[in-house]
Design a protein around this nucleic acid. Structure first.
Lengths: 229, 229
DNA sequence: GATGGTTGTCACGCAACCGTAACCAAAACC
DNA sequence: GGTTTTGGTTACGGTTGCGTGACAACCATC
């Protein structure tokens, strides 16, 4: 199925270049020059991924990312930010806003496409219905349910959000700080070790189905959900 | 290792400017004023990257790009095109001809060098997705994993950081002090000989896959990661 | 206001990991 | 051939990071 990519970029030459590269890679570009246009576009059709320039007229890309994350429609849509050299130090802020990846300008179109595909692959298993199945575990977004084979797994709210984040971002390591930002929402302050405890609880609820191995510890780095080994 | 960049540009002032910038960035310029000179130069020495002006006397840069793509010698060499403003609509044809990137005139030398480096990085196993493959070893940054073929290699935190640094800076010798700086982070003080021990440990973890030879000792200078022999 | 469930924090313990020193092997130098 | 320098290898004490169990605070429901 063709993926729809929303490109929010005020510089027309970059926008056109990206649009062409997307078409060539069999993806459908949606173009917007500023935050307002972006919001209109999103209201019309929800894209599969959003490509967001860091600097935009009116509202910064970061601010727009925050708002999109709060909207129900776009909360789950992955975001890739385009940053110029020297804006890199702000990655920290971006990760707090729930940005999935960064591409530093100047970039080659191949590099950009590779990143987009990587992010889409990560949120893969999601066929658009909101149901994801990975490693014998099935999470049903709309129904807010978790299944292992025929069984339904009883799971608490935080555990559910954590698991959902992991399954939409599989095969990638996230630090405690990143998990707090993505799952708890950057605004509240909680101890980093709290993540450990919830990881433990999640593993414990998955244990009866021998699925606790899906959540792996990467010493010194964080945690990873992985269906392989 | 010095990279050879073939510059095909009929305007001598631009050619000289680019040549100067390349030398400053530790790259070796090869100069050509038209398509014929370019083909002769390529026949003599295959460059690592080709910088091609859109407008050339005799044959258009685009046409030359197409021909170079068909030659076995140059089929894999990345191409960056230089286009004047207003020629932008033709990007479409360029991308179809297998051009890797564009730089629009007028450009700053800094931007040009940045683009060149980005494209070279990609042609060196780094496609921008954070996964690098060199000498039968694959390191996956986002997943924080190391692979040899189908196997996943278990590796400790410091070993991982060391390997990651080596693979992003292959074919170059680094002293113990430099490695401490880059891998440990300049702030903490540790003995230089500590590096030896971690090199040893890294070699040991790679040994079962006969990949320990990738890390070479350069007596009196330091260590080097090399995929070639 | 009692009950059951959920959440964040802490303290403890264990295993993995790290840095250092000491010793051994191999070059390089004279 | 002997000495010096450089790197390889090993063993070990100390530290750190993570898993775990316990617990108080909170919330909703009855």
């Amino acid at each position: 199925m063709q993926k729809r990519i929303l490109v929010v970029e005020d510089e027309s030459s970059i926008r056109d270049m990206v649009a062409f590269a997307l078409r060539k890679a069999d993806m459908e570009p949606m173009l917007a020059a500023d935050a307002r246009e972006a919001q209109l576009a999103v209201a019309a059709t929800v894209p599969d991924l959003i490509l967001l320039d860091w600097m935009l007229p009116g509202m910064s890309g970061l601010e727009l990312a925050r708002r999109l994350r709060k909207e129900t429609l776009t909360a789950e849509v992955p975001i890739i930010m385009l940053t110029a050299r020297g804006e890199e130090m702000d990655r920290v802020n971006g990760l707090e806003a729930g940005v999935d990846d960064y591409v530093v300008k100047p970039f080659s179109t191949r590099e950009l496409i590779a990143r987009i595909k990587a992010v889409l692959r990560r949120s893969h298993g999601d066929d658009g219905s909101g149901v994801i199945e990975l490693g014998g575990l099935k999470i049903d977004g709309p129904a807010h349910r978790v299944h292992a084979g025929a069984d339904t797994i009883a799971i608490g709210p935080t555990e559910y959000r954590l698991l959902h984040f992991f399954m939409t971002h599989a095969e990638r390591v996230y630090s405690r700080a990143q998990l707090l930002d993505h799952v708890w929402g950057g605004s509240v302050y909680v101890e980093e070790r709290t993540v450990d405890v919830h990881i433990r609880r999640l593993r414990q609820t998955l244990q009866p189905w021998r699925l606790d191995g899906l959540i792996q510890t990467v010493r010194g780095a964080g945690y990873r959900f992985s269906a392989s080994a």
